[in-house]
Design a protein around this nucleic acid. Structure first.
Lengths: 167, 167
DNA sequence: TTAAATTTTCAGTAATTATTGAAAGTTTAA
DNA sequence: TTAAACTTTCAATAATTACTGAAAATTTAA
């Protein structure tokens, strides 16, 4: 496999994976492109490389910046803006985990809390609703705590401390 | 908040969350409904409760069974089929984690392996592609191993052994 | 200032994904 | 057997989501 083929394969695979972890294809592909680029890319570069429109590029870059994954960089002597992505995979994982916790898990926890604390009128179905949503609440919260603690361990958290636990 | 409101809130929240972790709304809502039901439900019950068509119900129940989350159960004296979902949240989490690993993570790992092992022609961009996809490969594989090990710990894996690690 | 370069916004459209409903298929009781 | 009860399939359609392209807005060089 040559460079071009490998690159395209990486970008398209990462792109379709993106839609699974909650971001759209273009957003994931832009990130992938920046991730393997040796230098900052302009909007033109990205549009051309991925064959997507200016508007699409602009909107998705904005979202990536909202996530904190991509940043604008100045290139000496150039008027237009250039973009780079976080290059360290572990830092990337930390950012994604934090954002997903904030955007998705926290709101669900809130609803589960509300639902599981309704008044128990003694009926079978109310008891079951309370019991099951409580269990779900506990699980979700524990996972959320785990994720956040995990990603707070800056140095080699995965390879060092966690893996050996489950040898 | 009364039972009906709490139930609806739970089902709709779980439904919209579903689309985030890779299954569609109807599928997630059916699972949610079964999860808080005190008895097995028939297709009619589900259709009526969620106001969805027979076809939709049938297809999504099938998918839930493919995932191993929902099972058919016989109800004495009844001709039609009834359905139940796994009621234990931890078992549920294990099933979901395993399935996601198999369906999503494993294929990505395969591509990352391929891409990161292309011939190094010595150019900057090839070196960067190899370096970055290798890092991603390592991270993804480690996370996958973690998830699978985690969910193999049957008893109280989360609350007992993991949480205290990150106190 | 101003006008060229660049980016953003957004209405319209395209592409994708989910849902319906009815016909075809299957199962079961008698 | 057969016919009623029930389930599945799938073409048609609806709903949702993504993308385009051009006009409006912003930035910068002179």
């Amino acid at each position: 496999m040559e460079y071009k083929e490998a690159k395209d394969k990486f970008i398209s695979t990462w792109g379709s994976l993106g839609s699974l972890w909650g971001i759209n294809k273009a957003m994931a592909q832009i990130q992938a492109l920046l991730f393997i680029s040796t230098k900052p890319l302009s909007m033109e570069d990205i549009m051309e490389e991925l064959k997507i429109s200016r508007g699409n590029t602009s909107m998705n870059l904005r979202q990536l910046m909202d996530w904190g994954i991509v940043t604008k960089t100045l290139v000496a002597g150039e008027r237009k803006e250039f973009f780079t992505t976080e290059k360290d995979v572990q830092e990337l994982a930390r950012i994604v985990a934090k954002e997903r916790s904030r955007r998705e898990i926290k709101p669900v926890i809130k609803v589960l809390e509300e639902v599981s604390s309704i008044k128990n009128d003694g009926s079978e179905k109310t008891k079951e609703l309370i019991k099951q949503t409580k269990a779900l609440h506990e699980l979700t919260e524990t996972m959320d705590v785990m994720i956040n603690k995990l990603v707070d361990q800056k140095q080699n958290w995965i390879t060092k401390s966690v893996l050996k636990l489950f040898k």
